[in-house]
Design a protein around this nucleic acid. Structure first.
Lengths: 152, 152
DNA sequence: CGCAACTAAATCGTGCACGATTTAGTTGCT
DNA sequence: AGCAACTAAATCGTGCACGATTTAGTTGCG
């Protein structure tokens, strides 16, 4: 039979693509957060940075990048915008002047409470149980690990 | 006990966030495709557009946008780049001159075969069974639908 | 000390995403 | 015919993502 003639008809169908389902879901998630975050005056990627700071205030740029898988080309301007909005302070480390440490301002710290309401709103919107959410989340983390593994 | 004092400690932890797991997985997927697509001379979003055209050659801009959830602000420049690379042709419809229809060139059509190899490579990298992949994909589609639903 | 190797962040350039507006073309209604 | 309502794509502005390079600062070693 058609050796791999059958492939074309399925392998590349948009509806069968995990990659597109992932891409679409990620953008839908961002889109769901966006109007809620607007009230806090931050964008979605800025919110992710704040999540790391609420856990680990004073982290250096590279540490934030490690947690979010982002590099300084993305973070530096983003952090400058957060600083311009008065949510964080960027301080050059005195022990190693190459390092920039990021500290929440009082205003930045105050957002945490509102942010937890936002996170809960989104959780409701997903209509997932805690168990389902947890399972999906861990599957995605596992997928991320697999995709980041260097080519064999 | 602390009314919602326990919330803070969990609800906003980065590791517990579905949104971040999704964001990270999506970027990891793009990152996995990117070096393979480089050989075809296209970016990942351009590849998604080509997927729709291999299924539906001659689609208008709005139709591509409907399938990929993208608007003309994103698609117009992307399609111009695809045209500049000789992969598609943009033609104003004669029956309705507001409409721009996108046609694959011979070069664009030829990429389909190579693209299916790329898709298979990525599938291998995920180390998912066809069943697991299908289930995850459908869960993501369902999540996308939920997140896109207008606020109740 | 002096200098190469290294490291952290910043900068540069390109492309994508998206809200908002604009431009051009079509349709329907009187 | 004439014009308002509508529609499709393009355009504009801002922000994110990321490869590649640059700048500044540190460390180790002869």
């Amino acid at each position: 039979m058609g050796d791999d003639g059958a492939d074309m008809s399925d392998v590349l169908k948009l509806d069968n693509q995990l990659c597109f389902a992932l891409h679409a879901a990620s953008r839908a998630m961002t889109g769901a957060y966006q109007p809620l975050l607007e009230a806090l005056g931050v964008t979605y990627p800025q919110y992710l940075v704040l999540l790391t700071l609420w856990e680990e205030d004073g982290a250096r740029v590279s540490r934030i990048g490690e947690r979010l898988h982002l590099d300084s080309a993305t973070l530096t301007p983003l952090l400058k915008r957060l600083e311009a909005h008065g949510l964080v302070e960027r301080r050059r480390s005195t022990v190693d002047e190459r390092v920039v440490e990021i500290f929440l301002t009082a205003k930045g710290r105050r957002l945490e409470r509102k942010a937890s309401e936002v996170a809960k709103d989104i959780f409701c919107k997903t209509q997932l149980s805690l168990g389902e959410l947890g399972r999906l989340r861990e599957e995605l983390k596992e997928l991320t690990r697999k995709l980041q593994a260097v080519a064999a």
